[in-house]
Nucleic acid binder design. Structure first.
Lengths: 255, 255
DNA sequence: ATGGACCCTCCCCCCGAAGGAGAGTCCACC
DNA sequence: GGTGGACTCTCCTTCGGGGGGAGGGTCCAT
């Protein structure tokens, strides 16, 4: 039985932290003197203390730490997975950041273009938040092309402008005169005037260029209409991520 | 000029956040109505808003965000570097965590052994905190072996038991009868009784076994004396990290 | 001119941690 | 068997980054 200070040194935690973990039930002392309130720990609890330290240094919330320690089978697995996802996300974010800081937003070449209405086959995907849009989009593309359509295809992504908690992503395939939809919904995308800008680079970073497009519209006080369209010009299977070309378009209100 | 709500949507930040960034001087509105206090932003400020969002999602403190935005040349570089280091640290921590959770601390085979005193050549390194011990140790090894000593060598690391903010790490090379020190300090490591345990695995995870050793001593109420010794049995140049063998020893008080 | 959407400030809450005040306790040494 | 210093207790405050909501003022389109 060790008093709290000694145990803190053993487990590389602060006394404050140990008291807090006791309070929250994450790590209870082996014995508490009812008279004095003194906490006493067994040296064998050092393993738990150590685990808490490691988990916390990975930013795992104490609630989850508690679950992991109490032996929930899936908890540790969940933490592992969450961390892998987080690491990947940070890499992507860092790349985006460097792009923004280095070149600024590529806001220069915004053009106003007129587009005809087109007939398309559409599938819809639900993304769980902004972070999930990339996954949802590629899932949609996979579903839409599942029928084995041969290139060249003209794919368009449709994204609501103000992203909510849950984002409804749509992927559209432009149909020729006699093409069928292969089970997908057929719709006509409206034509008219669009603000358009070209994004060159990985799909991760499209949102940066999209911001620039929206900022351009906001600056000119021209209202936007309908979803943001992404026209995928390059084939990611044959083009390096840094060279992928995508046209971004947003419908303009006729005023 | 956009009011705060519109600008928030544009930059994917909350109104609360924008107000806070104004207050802290990280991102000032382009114009504030002195009568009403209303904040107005230029659409071109969206780039900054976006950068803040990215930086914050990388856990960069607002103070640093401010520096980066105000164009300090080194700031962004510093953030990049810090992130790389952080990613690497998280990988290591995760590996340690999995070891602790999977097998528990390898606390079983602690032995009490008697060691003779040995004459050694010693170099000292200063580690900036617990996280830096690994780097400092390998730096010490490099300095000590710089003279080109041929294997087999017997290397011992010496670490203070209660790690402070600044940790003095020492690396010792066991000298034979007639060996010289090659410029390094020569000292005699005291012999006597030691608690000893064998660590098998990457050097990153030695601290886990070390905790187990200290916990073993604490459990038996036997006081420890002198630094923790790590005897490097394997050669990391020829052995896979998972198979590296290291003896950990801590001097026992004769009582 | 009026209603609803928007904006303001101010206060409290969350998490996880740190520091300090003031009082009580343990223990080793004399 | 004292006693002093190190230790421990609880409670309060602060920090960073953010969220929710109250109460009241403002903008603008109908």
């Amino acid at each position: 039985m060790l008093p709290i200070g000694q145990f803190a040194r053993l487990g590389r935690l602060s006394v404050k932290q140990l008291r807090r973990y006791d309070e929250l039930g994450v790590l209870r002392p082996a014995y508490v003197d009812v008279e004095t309130g003194y906490r006493y720990y067994r040296a064998s609890q050092a393993r738990e203390a150590l685990s808490i330290g490691l988990l916390r240094s990975l930013d795992v919330p104490l609630a989850v730490v508690g679950e992991v320690l109490s032996g929930s089978a899936g908890a540790l697995e969940g933490v592992r997975e969450g961390l892998e996802v987080e690491l990947a996300r940070r890499r992507r974010t860092l790349a985006s950041l460097e792009r923004v800081m280095a070149q600024g937003l590529p806001s220069e070449p915004v053009r106003v273009v007129s587009e005809p209405a087109v007939r398309v086959a559409v599938v819809r995907e639900i993304a769980a938040g902004v972070e999930d849009v990339g996954r949802a989009t590629s899932a949609g593309v996979a579903r839409l092309l599942g029928g084995g359509v041969e290139p060249p295809v003209r794919l368009i992504g449709l994204f609501p402008v103000d992203l909510q908690e849950v984002v409804e992503v749509e992927v559209a395939l432009v149909l020729g005169e006699g093409d069928g939809a292969g089970g997908a919904e057929v719709r006509v995308l409206r034509g008219g005037r669009f603000a358009s800008v070209t994004h060159v680079g990985p799909y991760d970073q499209i949102s940066l260029t999209a911001y620039a497009l929206l900022a351009w519209c906001a600056e000119r006080r021209c209202g936007v209409r309908g979803p943001l369209r992404e026209v995928y010009v390059s084939d990611p299977a044959v083009t390096a991520p840094d060279d992928l070309v995508t046209h971004l378009m947003i419908g303009l209100e006729e005023s």
